[in-house]
Design a protein around this nucleic acid. Structure first.
Length: 484
DNA sequence: CGACGATACTATAAAGTATCGTCGGTGCCTTATT
């Protein structure tokens, strides 16, 4: 592809002179018509990897996004860049608007939508008539993380891609376990994709495991820690209730904090998010609902009040710290037995066998099995997931599949426990888990709670003042780097 | 499984303790057969 034109668009449209190393390779591969899996840390300019090609390829670029808020953000960002031919095709639209947009899909350069939306017959039909030049799956780890037991439509993307002469597919994510990469390739029907994996090590993030006796000690630790050290920070909790209770305790102790979880009204969620982004709020106590789409680069601390369900979740959440390259610390508060509660939440004691029988019974009676949800026998998520598997295999195998999923989840909790054992360097173990190696020469002095960490050097207010004193002599700077 | 809240219990009363019941993460999408 013509390099000249590429740089012209890059400069004129986006205002950049050059691409970053990873971006260049990814964009060249996309322009060459290859399927691409791009794994880049958040904040490394993922969106440019499809936005730039859109101007060179012509046609319509379809972006599949997991969250409505993410779509809105991207649409606004493109509009600010002067793009008018951009739209989010989702449930926010009125019936009229949706119809109007659907019958003019080809007039858009960027169409953002959800996996669920693609499976509405009318959307599917109209997409088939549109000249798609590229299909992008944003936050593609969702295929692996949500597809199997939460949002099965992520897996159905695979079926859809088989039904037509599809354009190249680009998968973007920051999560790179071998399972995630494998699932992406399989469910996006990729053929010998170009895979770009950026190094996952984040030398400016320090990992600390804090072993405590019980929940009350955790609370005390959090109260005193947030009094001593500066935010901004996220405290991840296991339950919505704990997020709210902890936030109240911190507020009483004089540390202003907010809470965030999926059980809140949309406007309250947006409000907390805005306050955190603007710096009005230093701390947010949140469930794992808080994160994706929160673009804040000066988060200095991510604290886990519970044991995350998988190493991938842990790294994803921790990775939200220190995006600006400044020192950041990730704490995990662990009490013996925490894994039991994580196991419970993840396993959900679903009487799967019973549910499958119920669905089959309804079907053989000629009734609509969806009634089971309406009548309160089953929650919607379980119904959707089981329906997905029952559509493509028999009940016996469905039971096996669900059992395998459960075993896999339990194994990942064990992996998580192994990760936090204080035997060898945490940073090294994390990288090994993701199939990478620790470059010893780049290992920071303050590494992890196994290698040793000096918090006072990292988190106190004093430190911030020192680093901002940019006119200090080299002797002074050396003194700061290597305090006696 | 374990945390937490409500309730009952004890018994010159008040606050500690025992027991029971409840609850626990993540998000799209609902345009129609009275």
């Amino acid at each position: 592809m013509h390099k000249q034109k590429l740089h012209h668009v890059l400069k004129e449209r986006f205002g950049y002179d050059e691409l970053r190393p990873g971006q260049e390779e990814i964009i060249q591969a996309v322009l060459a018509g290859k399927d691409v899996v791009a794994i880049l840390p958040t904040g490394m300019g993922k969106s440019l990897c499809y936005q730039l090609p859109a101007y060179l390829l012509g046609g319509t670029v379809l972006i599949i996004s997991p969250l409505l808020s993410l779509m809105q953000d991207q649409v606004e960002q493109l509009k600010r860049l002067g793009e008018k031919r951009v739209v989010a095709l989702n449930s926010f639209l009125s019936y009229q608007d949706k119809q109007r947009i659907l019958f003019n899909l080809s007039s858009y350069r960027f169409v953002f939508t959800s996996p669920e939306m693609i499976f509405q017959p009318i959307v599917r039909d109209q997409l088939a008539k549109t000249n798609l030049s590229l299909i992008v799956t944003d936050e593609a780890h969702c295929i692996s993380q949500w597809g199997f037991d939460f949002r099965p439509d992520y897996l159905r993307i695979s079926d859809w891609l088989k039904t037509f002469q599809r354009p190249p597919v680009l998968a973007l994510t920051a999560t790179a376990t071998s399972k995630v990469v494998h699932d992406i390739q399989e469910y996006l029907q990729m053929y010998k994709p170009f895979i770009h994996i950026h190094s996952l090590d984040r030398p400016n993030i320090r990992y600390v495991i804090e072993k405590l006796e019980n929940q009350d000690q955790k609370t005390e630790w959090l109260v005193s820690h947030t009094k001593t050290y500066e935010g901004p920070g996220i405290i991840y909790t296991q339950s919505r209730q704990r997020a709210e209770a902890l936030s109240a305790i911190l507020n009483e102790s004089g540390t202003r904090s907010g809470f965030y979880h999926a059980g809140m009204e949309q406007e309250d969620r947006v409000f907390v998010q805005q306050q955190f982004l603007s710096g009005e709020l230093q701390w947010v106590c949140a469930t794992n609902a808080f994160g994706m789409g929160i673009h804040k680069d000066d988060i200095r601390q991510v604290i886990h009040d519970h044991l995350p369900a998988t190493p991938a979740n842990y790294i994803q959440e921790v990775g939200r710290a220190g995006r600006n390259g400044n020192d950041a610390v990730a704490f995990l508060l662990y009490t013996e037995g925490d894994e039991e509660r994580t196991r419970f939440v993840v396993n959900e004691e679903i009487p799967i066998k019973h549910f499958i029988e119920m669905i089959n019974e309804k079907k053989s009676n000629g009734e609509n099995p969806a009634r089971l949800v309406d009548d309160g026998f089953m929650n919607e998520t379980d119904f959707r997931v089981l329906s997905y598997w029952l559509e493509r295999t028999d009940p016996v195998e469905t039971i096996q599949i669900v059992e395998r999923l459960r075993m896999d989840k339990n194994r990942q909790i064990q992996d998580m426990l192994k990760l936090i054992e204080d035997t060898t360097c945490l940073r090294g173990k994390i990288l090994t888990y993701f199939g990478q190696e620790l470059d010893e020469s780049k290992k920071p002095l303050n590494c992890c709670s196994v290698c040793g960490v000096n918090l006072n050097n990292l988190l106190t207010k004093q430190k911030e003042e020192l680093t901002s004193a940019s006119f200090s002599s080299w002797e002074e700077r050396l003194g700061q780097l290597f305090p006696i």
